[in-house]
Write a protein that binds this DNA or RNA. Structure first.
Lengths: 290, 290
DNA sequence: CCTATTGTTCACAAATAGGAAACAGAAATG
DNA sequence: CATTTCTGTTTCCTATTTGTGAACAATAGG
């Protein structure tokens, strides 16, 4: 039995509450989890989980074992990080969370180059936009665009700044009235981005309540609708700069006060940060500053 | 790789300073140790030990990894003890250190009976008399006869008391002068026990300096010499009570002031004491009090 | 009452562990 | 200086263990 792995799985089991989920998460079969947990229980001589077919709950022993197991795993990764910090060439798995749109446009090529520089680092990139817990999901690094303060559980380093543009297709205004002042937007089909904190209010000047026929959780998807001339969207500059240059898209209200977005590289605040994480951040910083 | 075991071996390696010794200690081959440590170093990406053929020393990484490894192992055994404490029937390995002579005479039958009562407990009995570090050697329980205070790292529970007798063979005095007062001993062949703190001084009244032609680190061996009529020895009562009863041995200076020995059951002071340890102590207490 | 989904068990294929011996390097020995 | 005698590493082979997918038993929900 690999006791450490058994303990890891036990902790996951307590968190997720299902053998099947843990098996998926650990890329193995549920029979494996079952056997390993049973073996752990056997060596301890105590049942850690009370299992009925549809429900899992910790036994008294499991209840007490769980926090200790957590601490052991934490200290182990702390020790590993310490050791790896002293090594020369960064290697190992680097699990990164990246915003969907930015990941596809700008970060894709950057990470490709990063891989070339550090061939010993095994990249595990997850594209997603929702607010997820980096630690819980086991991310070493997360890139997040934010206009507000950061969670103090993480260390955040600003990489670059973005601004928003309100865009429409060039031919959109052939059939729609012009937009002179922010309140004109209310007469138009303004798309809503699901992950905006202020759902149907665009943060222009004092805020403009908009409404439209599209709501999407992907700016890329929204961009397609804008290019098709179906309405207006508020998109970050890195997504529309090419189209604005070619004239395919037109910016509206360029002088209006729009929020500045900062892209942060965030990593869990720990005693020893793996070299590969710091190297990656530095690499990105250099790329963005160039 | 069994990472936990690798860490254990690494700690042992740092303590003992030799692959060969660790291999013996762990009941495995040195190739195993070598391979496992190498694998650990590989996953960490750092060399933990700098090895030359005749000398081992920790690298900078190893120096920092060692205390963390120690802590992890401690917390793990703490967690295991916690879990096992909640279990009903005690089981698992119980490694006991027992004084040589007492182990052979009185404790042998007691432990035999103990095994019968708790068939799930796997006994690992080490007979030895020297002062050894229970924790370092991995003992769960140590039985020690002592007349003085105990190390505060351990919890000690008194089991029973012993007294010393000065004995000689019955026919010894056919050819040697009688002994009336303690100072008469100086004219006799008095055997010396290696582990006595006051080497060649017997703790009778104010202490009597003795000399003789035998020095041994085994009271049993000494007893054989006494029975053969070669001289006198100071032996604990449990070793000579049968011979005194049959008259084979004769006690000398019975009214002299001799030290009282207390037999302690000692176990490492930890947060959670395994059930099997407590059960064993209770069993022995009962046996001695009966 | 049936279906869907859970965790456990089983049997077999694949991978791994473990040990003996050969090996290579360095210190002590004469 | 050659030799002996330790050290830790490597190699190779077998026995053990691991991991998987399918069948299984058990339970909650429709």
């Amino acid at each position: 039995m690999d006791k450490l792995r058994a303990i890891e799985w036990f902790v996951r089991l307590a968190d997720l509450g299902s053998f099947t989920l843990v098996a998926e998460h650990a890329h193995t079969s549920k029979s494996m989890i079952s056997k390993e947990i049973s073996r752990l229980e056997q060596t301890l001589g105590v049942r850690l989980l009370h299992r009925t077919t549809r429900n899992l709950r910790l036994t008294q022993a499991g209840e007490g074992y769980l926090p200790r197991a957590r601490q052991i795993l934490n200290q182990l990764s702390e020790a590993d990080n310490f050791a790896q910090q002293l090594q020369q060439t960064p290697k190992g798995r680097l699990k990164v969370n990246v915003p969907m749109a930015l990941g596809i446009t700008d970060l894709g090529p950057m990470f490709a180059e990063f891989m070339q520089h550090y061939p010993e680092i095994e990249l595990d990139v997850h594209l997603s936009d929702g607010d997820i817990d980096l630690v819980e999901q086991g991310f070493d690094l997360g890139l997040r665009a934010s206009s507000q303060a950061l969670d103090s559980n993480y260390v955040g380093r600003p990489l670059t700044h973005f601004s928003y543009h309100i865009c429409a297709a060039a031919d959109y205004f052939d059939h729609h009235p012009a937009i002179i002042k922010p309140s004109d937007l209310r007469q138009h089909n303004c798309f809503e981005y699901s992950y905006f904190r202020s759902k149907n209010t665009w943060p222009i000047d004092d805020g403009v309540v908009i409404n439209g026929t599209l709501r999407a959780n992907s700016v890329l998807f929204m961009l397609a609708a804008i290019r098709a001339g179906h309405g207006l969207g508020m998109v970050p500059d890195f997504l529309c700069r090419d189209e604005l240059k070619t004239g395919e898209l037109i910016q509206v209200l360029p002088q209006a006060k729009k929020p500045q977005l900062t892209l942060y590289a965030m990593y869990p605040a720990r005693h020893f940060v793996p070299a590969r994480v710091l190297q990656c951040i530095e690499f990105l910083q250099q790329k963005f500053n160039h």
